[in-house]
Design a protein around this nucleic acid. Sequence first.
DNA 1: CTACAAAACATGTATATACATGTTTTGTAG
DNA 2: CTACAAAACATGTATATACATGTTTTGTAG
Lengths: 152, 152
Amino acid sequence: MMNHLKNVDYTQICVCANLRKKTRVVTQLYDKLLHPTGLKVTQYSMLAHIDLQQAVSISRLGEILLLDQTTVTRNITLLKQNGYVELNRDAHDARTKNITLTEKGLEKLQEAAPIWQEIQDRIIDDVGIEKYADFYDTLRTMQKIIQSYDEE
Amino acid sequence: MMNHLKNVDYTQICVCANLRKKTRVVTQLYDKLLHPTGLKVTQYSMLAHIDLQQAVSISRLGEILLLDQTTVTRNITLLKQNGYVELNRDAHDARTKNITLTEKGLEKLQEAAPIWQEIQDRIIDDVGIEKYADFYDTLRTMQKIIQSYDEE
DNA sequence: CTACAAAACATGTATATACATGTTTTGTAG
DNA sequence: CTACAAAACATGTATATACATGTTTTGTAG
């Protein structure tokens, strides 16, 4: 007897819509657990990248996160309003603005990090490290494939 | 010799941020190719679900797509403004509004379908059907896992 | 039947996101 | 050096999304 739930042709389920749906679920979990810190996962992730990159420019951050430059500008504006980051003109190029974490931003990042780590470990553990490794790899592959389309 | 690109601990890359990033890439591809139709992939997907479900209510559609009811209301409003869907009060429950495709909405869906199918087939083929099956499965598992957290 | 909780939808507000376009600063062909 | 294209960032506009809350309609305990 067929399970009617599984009796769906998964190749006919939109790759994009399905990804978006699952991403919503994951995002809501992260946002819910990060809520006590006042950060959303998007903001946490951006702070973490700024911490790693040290004085990145807006467009460079966009390249890394594959975000439109204007989106970075908008997201950074919010972090700036909250006092988590600073923007400084580059010494050698007056067009460029470098983003750095403030003391407050670093503290906020450190406050949120343990919560993030807990969700992270739990999900990967529950999915299973091997399955997750494959999953991660397929996501990477998918990105590369799509980026290769643009070169046509 | 290590490949410095692969020399990153993938378990320390945020599951959520990574999913969001890849989802942006995929979404941009779909939106770009669907552009001639005037639909975004979100709208296409919603029209396709309405077509499948036949006279579905706003909250039911939210359950299916795991979207907040208010988000469905907003997205449907746009489809309605474009004349692709109609809203009708339910005959048995005056609170409920049922969504149906208009003739114009069906035509638009049929116009976009071949484009969607082409992207869909191409991505799955390029990723590889077996890898994609695993990937799809892991996405499902991840959703179930997270939904099980909410029951705690 | 009545009172009240719950269900279904709408509205206010805020964040995330991208595209089109504008402004300022650099870099470089000639 | 000058003119102009390109780079870097900002702004206008629109869609996608969720949470808090409000309104209307149902369902049900008593």
